[in-house]
Each structure stands twice: as C-alpha cells, then as structure tokens.
C-alpha cells in the first residue's frame, strides 16, 4: 500500500518535470524556427539549454532514485549548466566579430498576407551591398 503510494508520487513528480522540460525544449525549437534574426534565435536556443534540459534531467533523476544512474545524470546536468552558456557566448562572439548586425527595435511577426514583400525585400539589399563595395574598391 505504502510502496504503491510512493511509486505514484515518484511517477507524478517525474511526469511533471518531464512534461515541463519537453514543453520548454519544443518551445525553444519553435523559437529557433520563428524568430527573425540570428541574435534573437540565440535566446530561444538558450531556453532549451537551461530550463528544458535541467527539467528533463531532474525528471529522470526522480525516476532513477538513489543510484549510480542518478549521480551520472546529475553530472550531465552540471556539465550542461557549465558548458551551454560558454558555447552560446562563443557562437555570439564569433558572429559579433564577423560584424553580423543585430536587428534592433520593435518587431512583430508579419501577418500571413504580408509575408512575401517582407521576405523578398531584404534579399536584393544583401546582394546589392557587396556589389557596391566592389565597385568602390574598383574605382
């Protein structure tokens, strides 16, 4: 009786953590797809790395109980906690060093009817810029 109750508590706590973690992981992936430019996408990826990963690993630790498996899962959580901000900073730093400009100011997702002009407009600009530079250099 008592053991069964403990098992139910274990199951429900683990389920809460796993469902929450999976939600944050999926939200991070959706954000990486939806957000408009590179710097804002980094934020969504960071969300996956922090709360999503930690919650999933916590759920698994609850399942594993007191054992070597849970120690190893704790080690994974610790490693991700330390390395993911460093990797994020390295990616952003490299992009900043390569003079990738962030889009600043307010942004709203385009209404479906407006999608084509918004998407087509930046492309010729991007192609035109290098040409202009080469012309200046040639002169």
């Amino acid at each position: 009786m008592n053991a069964e109750l403990l098992q139910w508590i274990q199951f429900s706590v683990s389920a809460i953590f796993l469902v929450g973690g999976v939600f944050f992981v999926i939200a991070g992936a959706v954000g990486v797809l939806r957000l408009p430019d590179f710097y804002t996408r980094m934020h969504a990826a960071g969300m996956t790395d922090t709360l999503g990963a930690e919650m999933i690993l916590l759920g698994l630790i609850v399942q594993a109980g007191l054992s070597q498996t849970s120690l190893k899962l704790t080690l994974i959580a610790f490693l991700l906690f330390l390395t993911s901000p460093t990797a994020t900073h390295a990616v952003v730093g490299a992009a900043h060093h390569a003079k990738l400009k962030p889009k600043l100011g307010k942004y709203r997702a385009p209404v479906p009817g407006e999608v084509p002009p918004v998407k087509i407009a930046p492309k010729p600009k991007l192609k035109a810029k290098p040409k202009a530079r080469t012309k200046k250099k040639a002169k």
Binding site: V32, A45, A87, T88
Partner: peptide, 15 residues
C-alpha cells in the same frame, strides 16, 4: 547554433 542545440537535444535523448 542549430548544430549546437541539436547536440544538446541528442544528449537528452540518449539519457
């Protein structure tokens, strides 16, 4: 960025 995030998810999937 996508590869890095993919790798994090792979770790979670393996666990």
């Amino acid at each position: 960025l996508a590869v890095n995030s993919f790798g994090t998810k792979t770790v979670l999937f393996l666990a």
